[in-house]
C-alpha cells in the first residue's frame, strides 16, 4: 500500500482507483468482477513479494484466483490480460507505476477489438 500511495503522488494517476485490502489473498473473485461492473477497465491485484507473504498462502490464493478470473473474463467477452497479479514491496513505487502503465497499454490495445 505505501508503494502505491507514493506512486499516486505523482501526476497522471487520475485513472487509478485504489482499494485497500489486508492481503491480496483476501480479494474474492466476485469483488474483482464487481470492480469491472463499476467501470474498471483492468484490475491490478497487488500482493507482497512472494517470499514476504505475511499470511503464508495469500499470494498463492491470489494467484489461483487471478488465473480463474482471467478465464472467466475471456468467457464473458473481454480480452485477456485484464486481471494481473503483481508483487512488490513498500519501497518499490516504481514497480507499481510500471504495472499501471503495462495495464494501460493492455487496455488501450484491446479496447478496440472488444467493441
Amino acid at each position: 500500500m505505501p508503494a502505491a500511495l507514493k506512486a499516486m503522488e505523482v501526476e497522471d494517476m487520475d485513472d487509478v482507483v485504489l482499494r485497500e485490502v489486508p492481503c491480496a489473498g483476501s480479494v474474492e473473485r466476485w469483488e474483482v468482477l464487481h470492480a469491472f461492473r463499476q467501470g474498471a477497465e483492468g484490475v491490478l491485484l497487488v500482493g507482497c513479494l512472494l517470499e514476504n507473504c505475511a499470511h503464508h498462502y495469500g499470494n498463492e490464493i491470489a494467484g489461483r484466483r487471478a488465473e480463474t478470473l482471467e478465464r472467466t473474463l475471456v468467457d464473458l467477452g473481454l480480452s485477456p490480460g485484464k486481471v494481473v497479479l503483481v508483487h512488490l514491496a513498500e519501497h518499490q513505487p516504481h514497480r507499481f507505476r510500471q504495472a499501471v502503465e503495462a495495464m494501460r497499454a493492455t487496455v488501450r490495445s484491446t479496447s478496440e477489438e472488444e467493441k
Binding site: E28, W30, L33, R37, T72, L76, G77, L78
Partner: peptide, 18 residues
C-alpha cells in the same frame, strides 16, 4: 454463497458488455 455472488457478478458484467 461466494460462487453464487461470483456468478451473479459475472452474468451482470456479461449482460452489460453484450
Amino acid at each position: 454463497e461466494k460462487e453464487a455472488k461470483e456468478m451473479s457478478e459475472a452474468l451482470s458484467l456479461h449482460s452489460e458488455l453484450k
